[in-house]
């Protein structure tokens, strides 16, 4: 069995700061991490491999420094890591990204066999679009199972997989054929620590690095900014509201007086709220 896992190196969003004057992102010194959503997919892939045998290939598209994310994946136990990096990819939106990733995966297939499963993260924490997984599936003409909370059964012989998929108001139990693309829901598993052997192997193993041409991409007009139908025209900070919050007087007041003053203020601004609340709060 061959499983391909797509990951992305992202800035740790908790540590992103915006320059107060220029409104630009201050990237300097912001540490990068593997997109946290990808780890649920990686762990699921590793578990399937451990149970059914085969190999897990981790791939990413990004700048040369994205190799650190791939190396980390190797230390978790991935068998192979491939980085697709080229300046032509700069400024890719989700459509251009899925184009490049589809070539990367095709090239991986040529070298190490067609994947039976492809995993992507549900979404990334920097783009938050959740579009690249479905995009890659469509580009490769694969069936897709998104927001999977559990793999119920996996049958290599029959080439069938059954999963629980999170839907509105409940769980859809879906059965489909391999090969297919899966995105895992967050919180469905915990990424393993990785063994000492994997840590050593991860440090030694070469990260296979391809540029656009080596991945077999011939039409560069479909890559990067040029290949992106969406255009970011403006980046800006939200407008502050005209007036600041009306402050309830607190100086020298008891908490109980402050509370009464607040309730009065709420009543003034939302006159029918209390009546409506009482309809649902008659038990108090």
């Amino acid at each position: 069995m061959h499983i391909v896992v797509c990951v992305k190196q992202v800035p740790d969003s908790a540590q992103i700061r915006v320059h107060p004057v220029t409104n630009t992102i201050m990237r300097q010194g912001v540490p990068t991490i593997i997109n946290p959503y990808d780890l649920f997919s990686l762990e699921e892939a590793l578990r399937l491999r451990d149970r059914h045998g085969g190999e897990v290939t981790v791939v990413t598209m990004g700048p040369p420094m994205a190799d650190t994310a791939l190396r980390k994946c190797l230390t978790f136990g991935a068998d192979r890591a491939v980085l697709l990096t080229d300046r032509f990819f700069a400024g890719s939106d989700t459509l251009a990204t899925s184009y490049a990733l589809s070539f990367l995966i095709k090239k991986v297939s040529e070298n190490w066999g067609a994947p039976d499963l492809i995993f992507c993260g549900k979404q990334t924490i920097d783009g938050d679009t959740a579009q690249v997984g479905p995009g890659v599936a469509k580009r490769l003409n694969l069936l897709q199972l998104t927001y999977v909370s559990k793999i119920e059964s996996f049958d290599m012989e029959a080439r069938e997989i059954t999963v629980d998929r999170r839907a509105e108001g409940g769980i859809q139990v879906l059965k489909t054929k391999l090969p297919c693309l899966i995105t895992m829901l967050e919180g469905t598993n915990d990424i393993r620590r990785g063994s000492i052997e994997d840590a050593l192997r991860g440090a030694r193993t070469e990260i296979i690095t391809w540029n656009a041409a080596q991945a077999g991409i011939t039409d560069l007009t479909l890559c990067g900014l040029r290949g992106s139908p969406t255009i970011v025209k403006k980046v800006f900070a939200p407008k502050p509201r005209d007036e600041k919050a009306f402050q309830i007087e607190v100086e020298g007041k008891s908490m109980s007086d402050i509370s009464d003053a607040l309730i009065a203020e709420i009543g003034k601004r939302q006159p029918v709220l209390e009546r409506d609340m009482l309809k649902g709060a008659m038990s108090y």
Binding site: D93, T94, D128, Q131, A137, Q144, T146, E168
Partner: peptide, 22 residues
Amino acid sequence: TNLGRDLAGSVATTLLTGLTAD
């Protein structure tokens, strides 16, 4: 939603057009 995002990504890629999320 889970439905809308699942569908929008597939449709936009099939049509090769732009899609802005959220």
